[in-house]
Each structure stands twice: as C-alpha cells, then as structure tokens.
Nucleic acid binder design. Structure first.
Lengths: 227, 227
DNA sequence: TTCGGTCTTATGGTATACCATCATACAGGC
DNA sequence: GCCTGTATGATGGTATACCATAAGACCGAA
C-alpha cells in the first residue's frame, strides 16, 4: 500500500494556477517590486485593465491582495497607489528581519546537516559570481536563496513568508544599498561569516553574525534615504 | 500660522470608512476570529452575499484580503474555506511572537516613561478584573491592550501589525488555552512580571520574562492540540 | 446489481453595466 | 479681473449577468 503511494502520487494532476487573477497578481507584484511602478504612482483600475488585458474585477481583487501585503496603499476617495516607504518603516522592517533571521539562523546552525550546508555553499558561490559581476539583482536572488534554505532547514515557513513580504516592501531600497561600493565588498564576507558559523554548528555566533549583517544593511540604507 | 494649524485641524473631516467592503471585511474577520465560522468551513460566496447583504464583488474582494492575511485558504477549483491551523503552524507562530514581543518589550523597557507605565497598569487592572471573572475574551482583550501599548511605546507599529495578524490566526487556540485552569492562574502573574521589569527599566529581564510567558502559552497550546 | 453515460445544479471565474463623487474647467455676475 | 455656481469627465464603489466546470443524481443496459 505504502509502496504504491509514491508512484501513484506522480500521476496526480497539479492544478495549473491558470486563473487570470493569479497571473495578474504575480505580474503586478513584480511590477511594483522591480520598481516599474514607482512608489506613490496612482494605480488607475481601468488603465491597468488595458495594460494587463483583464477586467476590473480581476484587477480589483489583485489590488486587495497587494493592499493586504502592504505593497499597495489605499487613499480614501482617491484609489490605490503604490505604497510609499518612509525611513521609519524601513527601519522597523530591518529590525524585524534582524529578530527573525537571527532566530532562523541559530536554529539552522543547530540542525544543519551536510545536505543543507551543501545548498548554502551553492548559494554562496552564486553570490560570489554575481557580486563580481556587480549585479545587484543577482546578488539579491542569491541572498534570497541563501536565507530561504536557512529558514526551510529550521522549519520556519511562516517566518519566511513574513520576511519575504517585508523584503518586497523594501526591495528598491535593497537594490540601492547593493549598488553602494561599501556594500558590495562587505556584504558577501558577512554572509560567509554566517555560513562559517552554521557550518561549525555554532548557533549563538551565527545569530550574532546575522544580526551584524542586517544591521550593516540597515545602516547603509539609512545613509541613503534616512531623512 | 503654526498657532492656527491646530484649531483648524480640528475641522478636518475624517473619512468615515463607510465603504461596504471595509465593513464586510471587519465583520468577516470577526466572524472567523470569534469562531463563528469554524476552520475548514466552506465560504460559499453567494451565501455570504445573502448573509451580509452585499454583492459578490464585495465578498470576493474581502475574501482576497483575508486570504492574504492567512485567515482564509483557497482550495483550487473548490473555493475559499476558513483557514485550518496545524499544530506546526501554531508552534511557528508562537516562536515568532516570542522573538518579536521580546524585542518590543525590551525596547519598551528602555524608553518607557510614566505615561506608558500608567497605561500598562490600566491594562493590568483590566486583566485582573477579567481573570477573576474567568472571562477568556476579556483576558484576551486586556492582554492585547497591554501589548499594544508596549509595541507603540517602542515605535514598533509594523511588528504590531504582524503580531496582531498572527494572533488572529491562533485566536481559537488562545481562547482554549485561556480556559485552562493552569493558564488562568499563571498567566496574569507572568504578565505582571513583564510589567515589573519594564517599570524598573530592565530590558533584558523584561524580554526574558516575555519569552517565558509566550513559551508557557505555547506549551499549554501544545498540550491541548499538539498532535 | 453494477457500470457507464448523461443531465442538472452548485459554484467560482470573469466581464460589464450603472451609480456616486470628486476634480477640473468653464461661464456668468459683481 | 475675481469670485462663485454649474457642467462635464475621470474614477472608484457596487451590483449583476454570463460562462465554464466539477460533483452529484438519475437512468439505462449488460
């Protein structure tokens, strides 16, 4: 019975997320995160309908979703705009990330086996490659994949969702910090330090390194836009 | 000029959040949090239309919002249901709360002035009153107001949003834990301990007390539903 | 009786129509 | 020429109509 379960599971038809709404959600989210829609831009529903080729129902539902995610802000009697980011918000987001990532990193250092470490190494290599190419978006992807592995290893799926969502809110800021000279040099080395501690299974030290890393990123961010 | 600014501000017409959508969102959220709609229940759109007296557009937008909040789950090809809560999710949520609340409590202990302490005392009194009446919902409200003050004092508005949202996902569980004999006795005293440390402006001790409090709550929760 | 096919219904996905309101522009009177 | 009242358009809020499909009921034949 159990032997059958696996092969049969392979037959299962995955639901193609082919609903217009999900596709539109993905596109809009990316448009905002990538900066194609700049903060403060009005999101006029009918215009979006034309741009995405769907009806207002779909657009409005997507906007509701993005609103709950914090990527879109509703101005009463004026409609939705791309969420703006005050420095104070960014500051708070970095703080929360520090708390959650440090916890995840510590847990990861406790349980990491060879498989996890191998995955992390792979992300690190990717990180090196992209930093040498000076590609902020590449660095961002590599960093994301590094942390995703860490959160998954510790079973922190919900925390990962939260961190991802927060990161999407500061994505533009992150790209700016990554374009900074100081960041391109110190960033990778700090992440390597985190990995080194995980590799040796030293939770406390790993968490400390993680906090330092986030704090450094926050400091650069503040120097860029801290009003 | 500046002297005029204040009196004139009083004239400002606040936008009454009178949109059907917002009202429906509030009602639905409360219905789920309060347990009126039990986890796993199908949320049939047309039925909800009748129950709330609004159109499907409104209902669907509300569902999108609640979906993003994690209170509603979408089953492909079957529609929305009230989100179910696995123990592993609850465990993670308690962990995240521990991290965020401890941080907030520590910061609060650093900056708390008399005004904040007075507010906290008020919440504590309310907590005592409700625990003596053995009113789980009252206790929940008092605890919420206690923590809200703490997060606000430290300027952690975003973290507060996150914690509130997480709490709404485990609201039923929280009520159950509060109906437990052990909880009704130890809960208030642990919160008092947190306050005592804040009052003395001892960040580290306050954070430790907070972690202990959340850990205790998680332990009781696990004893109730930990599968 | 059991299997297979077909019809019906429930229900979500999508598009569209209509209304209220705010903002802008324009016109007329002082 | 400036101020005020009115018309017009842009845009969000809400309701409704239509379609596709999945799940169940019903029915007939082997």
């Amino acid at each position: 019975m159990i032997k059958n379960a696996d092969p049969l599971a392979a037959l299962r038809i995955e639901t193609p997320p082919a609903t217009l709404r999900e596709m539109a959600l993905e596109r809009m989210r990316r448009a905002i995160i990538s900066g194609l829609f700049e903060p403060g831009t009005r999101l006029v529903e009918r215009t979006l309908c034309d741009q995405l080729g769907v009806s207002r129902s779909v657009i409005r539902e997507v906007i509701r979703h993005l609103e709950a995610e914090g990527l879109v802000e509703m101005l009463a009697k004026q409609g939705p705009i791309v969420a703006r980011l005050e420095w104070d918000d960014a500051r708070q987001i970095y703080e929360i990330r520090a708390a959650l990532e440090a916890t995840a990193v510590a847990d990861c250092a406790r349980v990491a086996d060879e498989k996890v470490k191998a995955e992390l190494r792979q992300s690190l290599d990717e990180l090196d490659r992209t930093s040498q190419q000076n590609s902020p978006l590449g660095i961002l992807d590599a960093t994301t994949s590094f942390y995703r592995t860490i959160f998954r290893a510790g079973g922190h799926t919900i925390a990962w969702d939260i961190v991802s969502r927060l990161n999407s809110r500061i994505s533009r800021l992150r790209v700016m910090t990554l374009s900074t000279p100081s960041r391109t040099t110190s960033g990778p080395s700090q992440i390597r330090e985190i990995f080194a501690r995980i590799e040796k299974n030293e939770p406390e030290a790993a968490a400390a390194a993680c906090r330092a890393h986030v704090a450094a990123a926050a400091a650069i961010a503040e120097s860029i836009i801290g009003q």
